[in-house]
Simulated assay, not measured.
Amino acid sequence: MRYFVERVNDLNALDIGKLVQESEKEGYRFVTRLVSEFEDGTNTFSKPGEALFCVVSEEGEVVAIGGINESPFAQDAGIARLRRFYVLEKVRRQGVGTLLQQEIVDYAKNQFKEITVRTDSAKADAFYRACGFEFDDSASETTHILRFR
């Protein structure tokens, strides 16, 4: 199966119901927060340098989502935060997450000098390290950093 990464300008135009349901079942609320923050305008990934992306299957199903924001934890506007990154279980370990991550990194390296993320999942830790992030928990809100320059 082939997958395509698309930039998301209007989250309401996407059907991400499966992402929300599955992430909730796994105990993750960040996809639900993505929807509510987009609806109330708290985070629409529309500040300078920010972007939201999704991965769509050939059949048009949204199978992954993730975006990049200015880090709310940094004083430096050149530091980004990977946010709301989720991949449906049925397509994990098929390169979908890597495809999405690479698109986000390719975009972000022209906008920011580094990306931070926080995870408490061993699987996510392994994924981020495989994508070039370094483990760095020197700040309480960060576990991994990818530096561009």
Score class of each variant (00 low, 15 high):
Val117Arg: 04
Lys47Met: 12
Gly60Leu: 01
Pro48Gly: 01
Thr98Val: 07
Ile79His: 11
Leu34Gly: 08
Leu52Ile: 05
Glu89Pro: 08
Asp40Arg: 04
Gly27Arg: 08
Ala64Glu: 00
Pro72Val: 09
Val35Arg: 12
Gly66Lys: 02
Thr98Pro: 03
Asn110Gln: 13
Val117Phe: 07
Leu88Pro: 06
Gln111Tyr: 03
Asn110Leu: 12
Asp76Val: 14
Leu52Phe: 06
Thr32Tyr: 00
Val87Thr: 13
Val62His: 13
Gln101Ile: 15
Val62Ser: 05
Asp120Met: 00
Val56Gly: 00
Gly60Trp: 12
Ser23His: 03
Lys47Ser: 12
Ala51Pro: 03
Tyr107Ala: 00
Thr42Ala: 09
Val91Asn: 09
Ala77Val: 13
Ala77Cys: 11
Leu34Thr: 02
Val96Trp: 12
Glu70Trp: 00
Val105Met: 06
Ser46His: 08
Ile104Ala: 10
Asp76Ile: 09
Thr44Trp: 02
Cys54Ser: 03
Thr42Gln: 07
Glu50His: 04
Gly95His: 06
Val55Leu: 03
Ala74Lys: 14
Ile68Thr: 05
Ala74Asp: 13
Arg92Phe: 01
Ser46Trp: 09
Ala108His: 08
Val87Ser: 05
Ile104Gly: 03
Lys109Phe: 10
Val105Ser: 00
Ser23Thr: 10
Thr44Asn: 11
Gly41Val: 08
Val91Phe: 07
Gly67Tyr: 07
Pro72Ile: 08
Phe45Glu: 03
Arg92Leu: 01
Val91Ala: 04
Val31Pro: 00
Ile115Asn: 02
Tyr107Asp: 02
Ile65Gln: 10
Thr98Asp: 08
Ile68Ala: 05
Glu61Lys: 15
Phe30Met: 10
Glu61Trp: 07
Phe112Asp: 03
Glu37Leu: 08
Gly67Ala: 08
Gly97Pro: 14
Lys25Arg: 14
Ile104Asp: 00
Arg84Trp: 10
Arg118Cys: 14
Ile65Thr: 10
Val105Leu: 04
Cys54Met: 01
Val91His: 06
Ala108Asp: 04
Leu100Thr: 09
Glu89Asn: 11
Leu100Ile: 06
Glu37Val: 01
Val55His: 01
Arg29Ser: 09
Val96Asn: 11
Ser36Tyr: 00
Ala80Val: 04
Leu99Phe: 02
Glu50Leu: 11
Tyr28His: 15
Ala108Pro: 09
Glu59Asn: 12
Gln101Asp: 07
Asn110Pro: 02
Ser71Asn: 10
Val31Cys: 02
Val56Cys: 04
Ala77His: 01
Ser46Gln: 11
Phe53Arg: 03
Asp120Ile: 03
Gly97Ile: 08
Asp76Ser: 09
Glu61Val: 15
Glu114Gly: 04
Ala64Thr: 08
Leu88Ile: 05
Gly67Met: 03
Ala80Gln: 01
Gln102Ser: 11
Glu59Tyr: 00
Arg92Glu: 07
Thr98Glu: 12
Pro72Ser: 06
Gly78Ile: 02
Ser121Trp: 11
Val63Leu: 07
Glu26Gln: 13
Gln75Ser: 15
Gln75Asp: 14
Gly78Val: 09
Glu61Cys: 10
Phe30Trp: 11
Arg118Ser: 14
Glu61Tyr: 05
Pro72Gln: 09
Gln75Ile: 05
Thr32Val: 12
Glu50Arg: 14
Arg118Thr: 05
Arg118Leu: 15
Leu88Cys: 08
Phe45Lys: 08
Tyr107Val: 03
Val91Gly: 07
Asn69Glu: 11
Phe38Ile: 12
Lys109Val: 14
